[in-house]
Design a protein around this nucleic acid. Sequence first.
RNA 1: GGGCAGGUGGCGUAACUGGUAGCCGCGCCAGACUUAGGAUCUGGUUCCCCAAAGGAGUGGGGGUUCGAGUCCCCCCCUGCCCACCA
Length: 828
Amino acid sequence: MAMHEKYEPQVLEKKWQQTWEARGTFRLGRAGPRGKKYVLEMLPYPSGKMHMGHVRNYLLGDVYARYFRMKGFDVVHPMGWDAFGLPAENAAIKDGVHPATRTAENIASFKAEIKTLGYSYDWDLEVNTSDPSYYRWNQWFFLKMLEKGLVYRRFSRVNWCTGCLTVIANEQVKDGVCERCESKVMDKEMPEWAFRITNYSQVLLDALDGLTEWPDRITAAQRNWIGRSDGVEADFALEGSKEKVRIFTTRVDTIYGCTYVVLAPDHRAVASITSAAQKAAVDAFVAKMAARSKTERTEEGAEKEGVFTGAYALNPFNGERVPVWVANFVLSDYGTGAVMSVPAHDARDYDFAKKYGLPIKTVIHPSAKGPFEGEGAYTEDGVLVASGPWSGQPSAQARKDMGAWLLKEGLGKPTVTWRQKDWGFSRQRYWGTPIPIVYCERCDPERKGLPVPYEQLPVVLPDIETDKVLTGKGEPPLAKVASWVNTTCPKCSGPARREAETMDTFVDSCWYFARYLSPKFEGAPFDPELARKYLPVDIYVGGPEHATMHLLYFRFWTRVMKELGLCPVDEPVTRLITQGIVNGPDGRKMSKRWGNVVAPSSIVQKYGADTARGYVLFAGPPERDFDWNDKAMEGVSRFLQRVWTLAATHEAACVGATHDGAYEGKALEIRRHAHKALKRVTEAIERLSFNTAIAGIMEYVNALYLVKEVSTSAEKAAMGEAIRTLAVVLVPFTPHFANELAEVYGAKQPLEESEWPAFDPALVVDDVIPYAVQVLGKLRAEILVPAAATEAEVRAAAEAEPKIIAALGGKPVKKFVFVPKRLVNFVV
RNA sequence: GGGCAGGUGGCGUAACUGGUAGCCGCGCCAGACUUAGGAUCUGGUUCCCCAAAGGAGUGGGGGUUCGAGUCCCCCCCUGCCCACCA
């Protein structure tokens, strides 16, 4: 078959996509002499169109999936849809289209577009989280976790929009008002369902050490988020009262410097301890703080404010009497909601003390030599002073001893506090997994909720009249669907009501990677046997913005799945790759607002998927951001055209050419280029350096271009081999193009069904090697030396070089440094 | 305030365990082929110097080494994420 003059991606890409599909090239279980590889990319929320971030994300996985398949691994490479969630519901509120309809349309168009890029997915594994066959298992997990005590109902403070009459996420609060309706947002105590993820805080923290193939930024973010801090709790008795205030501190060594105690505005004790004289001021302050949302109250730069309660507390160590204040900077949901303030040794306490004229008492010196002489608070460790019997001790020692003393005296104890909170997962939304709970007034007067029996799962979302139910106002949408919400009690069969809230969509993404292995499995969330065979995920690619949400939740969930006997591993993912952002050509984040969006579809249409793929991979290292550059992208298009021309030029002479004898001269050079390219690309892929892999291929093509003519049978055979090798190294990056090339040069099946060849070690070394010759570390000459030359021979050659003779100037050589195959250095 | 990336030509980047700094691409310059070229091919392109010879050079300053973009110490800058967390 003769090649067309011009490379026409539109025709050829469709052809190969159809070929792969028809042959089932990417089906699971096809190959596998070397074992399995599970390559996964974070599943997308199906918006109507792909953006460049998606393209890049899936490409990084696709390169590995194709490479590993050719290396002989049984590769799992699935794709699915994170189909529940707010955008579809908000769109429904706006235009009345049912979320299910909108979602189905979006999936269809997203899927059609994703297919134009030629990713190597096994579409038989596709999963849709909004399908009852999927979310029934969310409900199943919920019930299992309820049994294990890992799900509970609690009262919690949430952002309550006074206009929409619903809970909204922190991200939706802008400057204290709702971003949608611009009404005031308040804190509200509401019942909600929560997972007891904090039971696993220590385990999740410890296991981070084992995640050696995760980026540091992600494990660091999780460590930070879990936020273990070791300290003590200590009781301050209240003067003239039987009550006491328990504080938490990590710096008990500074306690002799405590000059006041501060409670959070919503601390339980505030009302009871406030003196009559201070009541009006305290009430006003507490009310003012309650009217602000949590985000507003803790916003950066928020002024520290507080009022005196009129009460006094007694320091457990020395009995010193200190005033008790209420202030906005203390959080009720961290530690004990009360702190001891040591302005001399804490920056925040210092600011507050300065503002309200509270005393500052130094109890730590940087060393035994004397006091801190800088401005503000001294917050480092040091040596205790003015601290009774503890004076003279170093901070670390004092913390240990003082904690033990508190425990012995019954005044407190060493303790650990965590920043991480339990995961509240109920949402007042329609488009999510119904929580399988019913409320029966007779069997459950306290409204704790009765679990729906397993055999009644799934609790399916009711169909609704969209414009009546999804109004964005009033009670949760499902509560308005009388035919659904009214049900019978599983215990007494009397009238009961269903829980009208749905689950956070992060639940869906906690276990989808396991579901992919057996998406139609009926008896359990997934087939445990396949899980044993294919888990954990070997490579997981996604954005770093999920560091402390999804990537933490699914680690938690995996632990639970293991305890349930479903899953063989403790951790879901061995190697995590977090890809950088593709910015617009102007260097700003792509956004309609800036008009700098480059749509993948337009690039695919104009230049073809292979150009888009090649460019996105060539633009820079996977983990780094880059700015889109049309010119550079066109460079990749030009490169592919150039390869095409090269292959067409040699087609007549080299396709099918063979040669039996030895290769030498030009023919040998061609073979050397091929094997060096193979080596370079293979090694670059292995170390996630796709941009340099492509640079290597370009260099290879440049070298083949310089060959110009092939005439002998050896040259023809070598060039034929070289172009087939070129096709192979291109497959992971520009698969349609590569397959077309291979087919013209005689391949009978898609390259992905063939083997990734090994390079010949004998062909990647040259027989003449350039040595750099340095004198005193400065480059003075370059000499060509046979590869087999000994140190003495190289030295002799170097010393014979005129420039070196001049540079040495007859001075005696004190030392001769010899680096084989690289350089020599004369030290004089 | 904390954490994590980064800082190398005009630009995106490259340099495996310390060993010739700048691969590859973009841009630019020159030449070839051309009626033409915003096509294609070839060559050049860190800076200083007309050129050569030579010198300087990987954010700044020190250090270790025969030799440092790479290792150690101090400092500066940029980006991202988290943050009144006691």
